[in-house]
Structure formats: C-alpha cells, structure tokens
C-alpha cells in the first residue's frame, strides 16, 4: 500500500500500474462493467431513466457516506454507527414539520440539520472529551435514537413530504437532472474543496494519519474531531430529509438500511477504515457501485436468499481489489 494519499498518488506519478490500482479507477471500471452486465441481463437496465433513478438512490446513500467518510478520515478507529438512527429520526421529523405543505420546508431543513448536528456533537464529545471509542459511543447512541423513534412514532402520524421537496428529489430540475443530484454534486465539490484546499481539510488528514504529531504541531485535535462527528450527524439528517422527499412518507427504521452500507461505500471508494488517506470522490463512486450492484440483483429472477448470498460474496470479491492489510514480515 502506498503511503501517499490515494487521491494524489495519480498526480505525482504516471504509471499504468499505479493508475489501475487507483480505487476511483477501479470503481469507475466496475460501474461501467456492472451497467453492461445489467443491460445484458435485462435490456433497458442502462437506459437513461434507469440510470437517473439509480443515481437518485445513490445520492441518498452518498450523502450519508459523506459524513461517514469524514469521521473515518479523522482516524483513531473513527466510525459512526448512529447515522442510521439519525436518518430515520430526521425523516420522521421532516415529515411531521412539513406535513405536506411547502411552507414547512425551510423549518424542516433547519430542524433536521440542528437535530442531526446535535446528536453528532454528542458523539463527538463522548469520543473526544470522555475518550469513549467511536464504535462504542455511536453504537450506544444508535440504541438511544432507536428508543427515541419508538417514542415519537407513538400516536403521531409519521408525516408527509412537501410536494416541492418530492419534486426536488424525483423530477428533473436542471439539464434533465433532479435537484438532489445537483445537490450531491455540489456536496462532492464542497467536500473536495474542504479536504484538499482548506486548513481544516489538511488538519483532518493530519489527525487521521498521526494524531500525536498533529497535536504536537498545534492542531486542535479534539475540536476537529468533534466537528467531524457534528458534520456526520448533519449529513445523515440531510439524507433523511431527502429520503422522505423520495419515499413520500417515512416508515419504520428506514435509516438502518444506510448504516453499514455507508461504511462499505467509503471503503469501496478507497478510504481505509484506519483513516488518514482517501477522499470523497472515491466514496461517491463507491455509493454508485453499491447501488448498481443491488439493483442488478433485484432485476435477476432469483429468490431473496440467492440475491443476498450473491451480494455478500460480491462484496467480498470487490474488497479484494482494494487496500488489503499489510502482510507481516520480520
């Protein structure tokens, strides 16, 4: 494994071998291959409408994965298992605040982002000030969020999306692409800028690759790590908001479908769970890859059991292409 940041390795040295090993390149090749396979298995799979639908689903996953990506980049076993709970909570909250009227969209956005950021900040405080391992802290928070969902659901209808929001997520907005895809691209550009061109971004890589050194160099390690978790909560909340625009109404624990897949998308995008290297562009490709794979499996005519077995095995094979751990040598 090269020590360099995955995204930059291609710039600094032009060799075919290195290029082929780029996670982003691997993901893009696999995406094209899977689309071709899908088209072969069921004609029309790679039609523009279908690809658009896949991209909308991928955008939802990709937005959750943005926050997950940041937390993982920050290192020290950074991981956020609570994103699933935040997505569900945000979807319910948005549904109830909007309750089918366009006037409620702005309050819904504010409420969701605030709640998501709040839970993210709790995670961040637990991880930094109390030094609870992220896996444990966010796992515990997931339990709290799931309990909170039960309380909220009781007696209160889970709400409806505002028509304008549904339109934003599902109808073409600009150049034939729905608003959510533009939003996702915007997030992609913003994340690239944040990570590669700002002090904050450099500090994230610094604490992710060597926290001790970063601390000695004067990086406010704790503050940055709290902010990463805050952002993760906010991104998950944003995804929940968009999700209700996509689905129309929120149903039980929708967010759980995003918890581990968001981590898989990050890993398939070339960011190792040890943090400190990688980036969001790869994660976006990872999210698309994951969604296409799931979609192909639903088009082929086999049982749910066979689908799951193939999905699990394919994920294992895909992971073989990416950074495997170093072998021990004396």
């Amino acid at each position: 494994m090269s020590v360099e940041t995955a995204g930059r390795a291609g710039v600094s040295r032009f060799s075919a071998g290195a290029l082929v090993r780029q996670p982003l390149v691997i993901a893009l090749v696999l995406i094209v291959a899977l689309l071709a396979l899908g088209e072969m298995l069921s004609p029309g799979f790679a039609s523009p409408q279908q690809i658009l639908r896949l991209l909308i689903v991928a955008a939802l996953l990709g937005i959750v994965a943005a926050g997950q990506n940041l937390v993982i980049l920050g290192g020290r076993e950074g991981i956020d298992l609570s994103v699933g709970g935040v997505v569900s909570l945000s979807a319910i909250l948005a549904g109830n605040v909007m309750n089918g009227s366009d006037a409620g969209i702005l309050p819904a956005i504010l409420a969701c982002l605030a709640v998501g950021a709040l839970f993210g900040t709790f995670n961040g405080i637990g991880v930094t000030l109390l030094r609870i391992p992220p896996l444990v802290m966010t796992l515990g928070m997931l339990g709290v969020l799931q309990g909170l969902l039960v309380v909220i659901r009781q007696g209160v209808p889970s709400g409806r999306a505002a028509p304008a929001l549904a339109e934003f997520v599902t109808r073409p907005f600009l150049l034939g692409l729905p608003g959510i895809i533009w939003l996702w691209l915007l997030i992609g550009v913003a994340m690239a800028f944040l990570l590669r061109r700002t002090v904050f971004g450099y500090r994230v890589y610094a604490i992710g690759s060597n926290e001790q050194a970063a601390m000695l160099a004067g990086v406010p390690v704790r503050l940055i790590r709290i902010l990463l978790f805050t952002l993760s909560g906010a991104f998950a909340a944003l995804a929940g908001l968009c999700l209700i625009g996509y689905a129309g109404t929120s149903f039980a624990n929708v967010g759980e479908l995003y918890m581990l897949p968001s981590i898989i998308a990050v890993v398939l995008g070339g960011t190792p769970l040890s943090g400190g290297k990688g980036g969001y562009t790869g994660t976006m490709a990872g999210a698309v890859l994951l969604v296409i794979l799931q979609s192909i499996l639903t088009t082929i005519n086999i049982d749910e059991s066979g689908r799951q077995m193939i999905f699990g095995l394919t994920l294992l094979v895909l992971m073989m292409f990416y950074g495997r751990g170093r072998a021990m040598r004396a």
Binding site: S305, Q308, G312, L316
Partner: peptide, 26 residues
C-alpha cells in the same frame, strides 16, 4: 488470511449467512 478489514468483511459475510439462512428457511 486475506487481510480484509474486519468490520466491512464480516458485514459482507453476514449478508451471505443471512442469505443462506433464508435459503434454508424462507
């Protein structure tokens, strides 16, 4: 042996095992 990352690799095998469980008993 293959040195995949434990969290994601065992999540993948968990999908595989769940699929097998569904196959045995739908």
């Amino acid at each position: 042996v293959l040195r995949l990352q434990a969290i994601v690799a065992t999540f993948a095998t968990s999908i595989l095992f769940t699929g097998m469980a569904l196959y045995v008993l739908p």
